[in-house]
Computed example of a mutant assay.
Amino acid sequence: MSTVAATPSAVAITRPLDLDRTAYALTNVHRDAPAVAVSGALARSLLASALHSRGSAALEPATGIAVFTWGQIASMAPASLGPVYRVVPARRPPHTPCCAYCGHWKGEHDDPGAPTACTRYRLHIGPARYAMPDSDSVTYAWVRRLGRTRVVFQITKPSEHFPGGTLVVHRYPEIGDGPVEFCAHFLVVEPKLRGAFLARARAHVAGEPRRATGGER
């Protein structure tokens, strides 16, 4: 697991609620792109995903600046690390209505990068347009479309670090709509739930009724 720090005086944090500001300016430290204003709810959901993947996070108490990173994704690319994000407290932009259920801004709903968005607007795992052939590291994969964007879901095979496998989501926008986002969402699957998780995903892709699969994730 990597260690990150916002500043020399930063302290390690392990709870999403440690990011308690209303809005943040979010940047990927490895990508040359301007900061994006996001809700505090979205920043907390990203931090939750990072911590679930065995990543680490650090917060500067005096400024509220935090840096967090995803853990090693051994089942996909050995010795590789996920994205590293930096969030800086910011003013909430005007005309950004919040969801009364989860606190995400309206434009942040149905986003694979917002895994804790409320069930009313959550990104569902089906129905899909088509399933994809299995690969060496992926047990099952399928594709959906959100507007002009293709969203690719992958359930990876069990590995030493993730004995139940993982659910990894990639976003592929149309040309001119922004960069590809690999691991836009990363969820660890519990080993005892893997069979049911995979069966539910296959049922959604096959278009079976919701009552037969236990509902959306």
Rank of each mutant, 00 (worst) to 15 (best):
Q72I: 09
G103C: 00
S56K: 00
A131I: 00
C99Q: 06
A79K: 14
C99D: 02
Q72M: 07
S53E: 00
H109K: 13
G113K: 01
G103W: 03
P115N: 13
F68Y: 09
P97C: 11
H95C: 04
G64R: 04
A74N: 13
C118N: 03
W105D: 08
C118V: 07
C118A: 14
D111F: 03
E60P: 00
A128K: 03
L81F: 15
C118M: 06
R92W: 02
L59W: 01
R120I: 12
V67E: 07
L81A: 08
K106N: 10
R129W: 11
I125Y: 08
F68D: 03
T119F: 09
P94S: 12
C118P: 10
W70N: 05
T96L: 13
G82L: 06
W70E: 05
S135C: 11
T69H: 05
C102Q: 01
T116A: 11
S80E: 13
T116V: 09
T69V: 13
P133R: 08
T96H: 14
P133S: 04
Q72G: 03
C98H: 11
S75V: 05
P83C: 04
Y85L: 08
D111K: 01
P115D: 06
T63D: 07
A128W: 01
Y101I: 11
Y85V: 08
C102V: 09
C98V: 15
P93L: 08
R120D: 15
W105P: 04
C99R: 07
A128D: 01
A131D: 15
R122K: 13
W70L: 14
V84M: 12
P94E: 11
Y130L: 13
G71E: 01
V67Y: 03
A128S: 12
S56I: 05
R122L: 12
V67N: 04
S56L: 04
L81N: 09
D136S: 12
T96A: 10
A57E: 04
V87L: 01
C118R: 07
L81P: 06
A117H: 03
P97T: 09
R122Y: 06
V84L: 07
A66H: 00
D111G: 05
T116Q: 13
C98A: 11
Y101P: 00
R92A: 10
I65T: 12
E108G: 03
G113P: 03
V84G: 04
D134P: 13
S137P: 00
L59T: 01
L123P: 03
H124T: 12
E60G: 02
M76L: 14
S53I: 02
A117C: 14
A57K: 07
L81W: 12
S75C: 14
P133E: 09
T119V: 06
H109S: 11
H95F: 07
W70S: 06
T63E: 08
D134R: 12
M76Y: 02
H109L: 02
Y121D: 15
V88F: 06
L123Q: 06
A77W: 14
A128E: 02
R92G: 05
I73W: 02
G103D: 04
P115Q: 11
